[in-house]
Structure formats: structure tokens, C-alpha cells
């Protein structure tokens, strides 16, 4: 998403005219630790899917998947995983 310069904001002010655009704001770059799933241990219990506060884990009917565009790396999924198949790995520059 390209952020506007101030000259584009003089006329309109702090108003968003296109509703429902939160999806465009990718919060994944807030992350310092990255959850990674070891699918060989995963039992598809869906705890991570259920607990993720950002709805950044999806389930397609077969397996869970982390959307790194929105995952902020809070680690709740790793903490809740009953078989400990999610590890938090420090992000590298």
C-alpha cells in the first residue's frame, strides 16, 4: 500500500472514503518472531486457528496455514498448540 504525502491530504483531511480497507494494511512487518508449523506433528486440532487474535491462520478443510502478511508474531498459537508443533523463530533482517 502506497501511503499518501501531506499534499494529498490538505483537501480531504483524515477521512477514509473507501470502507472495508483494513485488509490493505499489512501488519505482518510488526513481527519479530515468526511461528512455523511442523506439519509432521500437526494433528489439525484447530486450536491455533481458533486462538489467533488476528485471524491470520486459515483452514482450507485439510490443513491450517499461517498468513504472514497479517501474523504479528504474538506466539499465542505456539503457546496453545497441544502437541507443540509450532515454534517461534526470530526474524532475520
Amino acid at each position: 500500500m502506497k501511503l499518501p504525502g501531506w499534499k494529498e491530504l490538505v483537501e480531504i483531511g483524515p477521512i477514509i472514503l473507501e470502507p472495508g480497507n483494513a485488509r490493505e494494511y499489512k501488519t505482518g512487518d510488526w513481527r519479530t518472531f515468526r511461528p512455523e508449523i511442523d506439519y509432521s506433528k500437526c494433528t489439525t486440532c484447530l486450536f491455533c486457528w481458533l486462538f489467533c487474535p488476528d485471524s491470520a491462520i486459515s483452514f482450507d478443510g485439510k490443513r491450517v496455514e499461517i498468513n504472514y502478511d497479517y501474523c504479528k508474531g504474538c506466539g499465542i498459537c505456539a503457546a496453545e498448540c497441544p502437541v507443540k508443533c509450532i515454534t517461534m523463530k526470530e526474524e532475520e533482517k
Binding site: G5, W6, K7, V10, G13, P14, I15, I16, L17, P19
Partner: peptide
């Protein structure tokens, strides 16, 4: 439908204030 005064953190707040000063 529109949103007035949404959250604008370190990546946007400054631009809004400069725009207001020019207004």
C-alpha cells in the same frame, strides 16, 4: 460510507498534521 479520524501512527500522523497546517 466513510471513516473519520482513523488511527494514524508514526507512518501517517505527521502527514495529516502538516496537511492541517496548510489548510
Amino acid at each position: 460510507p466513510m471513516t473519520m479520524g482513523p488511527l494514524a501512527l508514526f507512518d501517517s500522523y505527521f502527514e495529516f498534521k502538516v496537511a492541517q497546517a496548510y489548510a
